[in-house]
């Protein structure tokens, strides 16, 4: 697998198809980190193994990276999904990015352009794993008071560092609502109210857009299970609206079902 990626990266760089390949390389200690390969002879530094889980799609949105020229990106399923969503949101054109796609079965997938990527993502709709669903269900089975206590306890650890936001490829707004102070939508201090408001807002602004890559949860320095909020919404979207839309909140059906509007 790793050899095939290196081979592909070499081809893309030496043929001039791209100016930079974004992938994983050796970091400090036993860790891998994002690397940006600009010369074909450096492609050998690319790594692909079980440690390579970071969602690299966020780098495609950085102007520093865009300044390097056309990019190719090493993309497992969550990265492919992020790119599809970012395209939907018109964050880049078809010609801006090339992908070195890797399937969930760890095979190289041939995605010659971003339309092929879109088709591939559509053919593999986002679903929670049975383990993820079970965790969501476990919380659902609690009483409301227990869930309140659970989240009060969890969010009380939040220090509002916004690492969750910084690591998320979908959180690219130049000005986040959390920083708006006319009016002050989210209470600034990280007291119970400020934390609750931040977590509700983060989850809602990612509704229908989150690709369940887990980056936010990995980034959180205090171990808040943020993913559960996103996963609750992912399950709700599948249950209530089906899977056919690219972005469920930009669409509707006149007969969408609910049981709470009087």
């Amino acid at each position: 697998m790793q050899d095939k990626i290196i081979q592909k990266a070499k081809e893309l760089l030496s043929g001039g198809a791209v100016q930079v390949v974004i992938g994983y390389g050796q970091g400090t200690g036993d860790r891998v980190r994002a690397i940006f390969i600009q010369k074909p002879e450096d492609a050998g530094r690319l790594i692909m193994d079980g440690r390579c889980v970071q969602n690299l799609a966020g780098y495609l949105m950085k102007h520093e990276v865009r300044a390097l020229g056309r990019a190719a990106i090493v993309a497992r399923m969550p990265v492919l999904r992020s790119i599809a969503q970012l395209m939907y949101e018109e964050q880049f054109k078809d010609s801006d990015v090339a992908v070195i796609g890797i399937s969930d079965a760890n095979e190289l997938v041939d995605l010659p352009d971003l339309n092929a990527l879109k088709e591939y993502v559509r053919a593999n709709p986002l679903k929670l794993t049975p383990e993820e669903q079970a965790e969501v269900d476990r919380l659902d089975a609690m009483t409301r008071e227990e869930r309140w206590a659970f989240w009060m306890e969890e969010t009380s650890k939040c220090i509002k560092c916004y690492a969750c936001r910084a690591s998320c490829p979908m959180c690219y707004c130049a000005r986040c609502t959390v920083e708006v102070n006319q009016p002050q939508w989210i209470s600034v201090p990280s007291h119970d109210l400020g934390n609750l408001e931040w977590h509700i807002m983060r989850a809602m602004h990612l509704a229908g857009r989150c690709v369940n890559c887990g980056e936010c949860t990995r980034a959180c320095p205090v171990g808040i299970p943020l993913r559960l909020l996103n996963q609750r919404i992912i399950a709700d979207i599948a249950d209530n609206f089906g899977e056919e839309e690219d972005y469920a909140l930009a669409a509707f059906k006149p007969d969408d079902k609910e049981d709470f509007i009087r």
Binding site: E145, I200, G208, D236, I261
Partner: peptide
């Protein structure tokens, strides 16, 4: 309505 469906569920999930 779509947003309310998700918002209500999220609030409930957080114990609001």
């Amino acid at each position: 309505r779509r947003r309310w469906i998700l918002f209500r569920s999220l609030l409930n999930f957080m114990g609001v």
